[in-house]
Nucleic acid binder design. Structure first.
Length: 341
DNA sequence: CGTTTTTGACCCGCGC
DNA sequence: GCGCGGGTCAAAAACG
């Protein structure tokens, strides 16, 4: 057993290394994400229904490992890997966790990073399998994410990020994916008490532009990371909620499923970005377009506060829509269909 | 043919 | 100590 385990580790190591090469190459290119998260107006109306359930679901997540202080055995196990060295470095006390809830039709949110699925499990109390992904952008990147449907509303996708990216992050790795808990706790400290409070992102941003066809409905908006800076601005994301646990500040959840008024879905967004055409449904898109004239929108967010990522976070509205394509462009089975009762 | 996903098995922590 | 459940591994299958 022990010898086989050792062999396992080595194999894993080698495999990871090879993967890393590949990812690095991808890194050079502009990463374009097709995010398939859609905010259906109809589903938006169901948000209220969700509120109770969804909150439960993500609290579940947080309680899973509230005090995950470097899992002893796991940590030791992984210590052999560079991954874990990074992990330890970044989280001396506990793994940072950052959950994002969003309505999404696709199996997983495209957040700008390359993710490799390494497992799937049916968790108790939830008929929908939980997917386990690890960041594939860098071979040593310790970031992992878990993706699971909300048990009460399968249109809601709960993505939990864990760890920090150890790579440069030129990528449009999303703030969510990259900054994890620290960011979230920071955010929460700002929007503290109320769950219904708008998410406020202080930013440096230029007016957003969109390449999407104005006449069509916006299916997604992108969250981009870029290193550029601009004039400060604030984003208000009403009805989104950030929650953290006082007990476990290292994990936080951003709830993007809560929609604004029904008559004007995402009106808040339009108001923030005047150039954004009116749209009725959206997809949440975390994409990476590092240097594009199309999206000079870069926001410096408080997310950067503690994360070591001083890059700016750019929220970019874009018309993207390749549902059922993941980051690699590979066709993904529409899992919802599979889960359909 | 190389890469990614699937999936069953395994490992480990935790509660009883 | 035992069983359960979550998380991970890795061989096989699927995909482009």
């Amino acid at each position: 057993m022990t010898s086989t385990d050792a062999v396992r580790k080595d194999e894993t190591k080698n495999r990871n290394l090879s993967n890393g090469r590949q990812e690095d190459q991808k890194f050079d290119g502009k990463l374009s994400l097709g995010l398939d998260c859609r905010f259906e107006p109809s589903s938006i109306s169901t948000v209220n229904r969700r509120n109770s359930s969804s909150i439960n679901s993500f609290e579940e997540l947080k309680e899973e490992e509230p005090t995950e202080i470097g899992p002893p055995s796991k940590l030791l196990k992984t210590l052999k890997n560079a991954d874990d060295q990074v992990l330890q470095r970044q989280s001396p006390l506990k793994k940072a966790r950052f959950s994002v809830r969003a309505r999404c039709d696709t199996p997983t949110m495209n957040d700008g990073c390359q993710w490799r699925k390494y497992g799937q499990k049916i968790s108790k109390g939830n008929p929908f399998p939980r997917g386990y992904y690890r960041c594939n952008v860098s071979s040593s990147c310790p970031v992992r994410k878990q993706v699971q449907r909300c048990v009460d509303d399968m249109s809601i996708l709960i993505t939990t990020y864990e760890g920090k990216h150890d790579h440069p992050l030129p990528i449009s790795a999303t703030a969510m994916a990259s900054t994890t808990s620290d960011a979230a706790s920071t955010l929460q400290s700002r929007s503290s008490s109320s769950h219904d409070e708008a998410l406020i992102v202080t930013s440096a941003i230029a007016p957003i532009s969109t390449s999407s066809t104005p006449s069509t409905t916006l299916r997604g908006f992108n969250f981009n990371l870029s290193q550029s800076t601009s004039r400060p601005q604030q984003f208000y994301i009403p009805n989104s909620s950030i929650s953290t646990s006082n007990l476990h500040p290292s994990s936080a959840t951003v709830d993007l499923t809560t929609a604004p008024s029904t008559s004007r879905p995402f009106g808040w967004f339009s108001s923030s970005f005047s150039s954004v055409p009116r749209y009725s449904s959206t997809g949440l898109n975390f994409s990476s377009s590092s240097s594009s004239s199309l999206e000079p929108n870069t926001l410096q967010t408080h997310w950067n506060g503690h994360t070591g990522y001083n890059g700016t976070l750019a929220y970019n509205i874009n018309h993207i829509g390749h549902p059922y394509l993941n980051t690699t462009g590979r066709k993904q089975p529409f899992q919802e269909d599979l889960y359909q009762p």
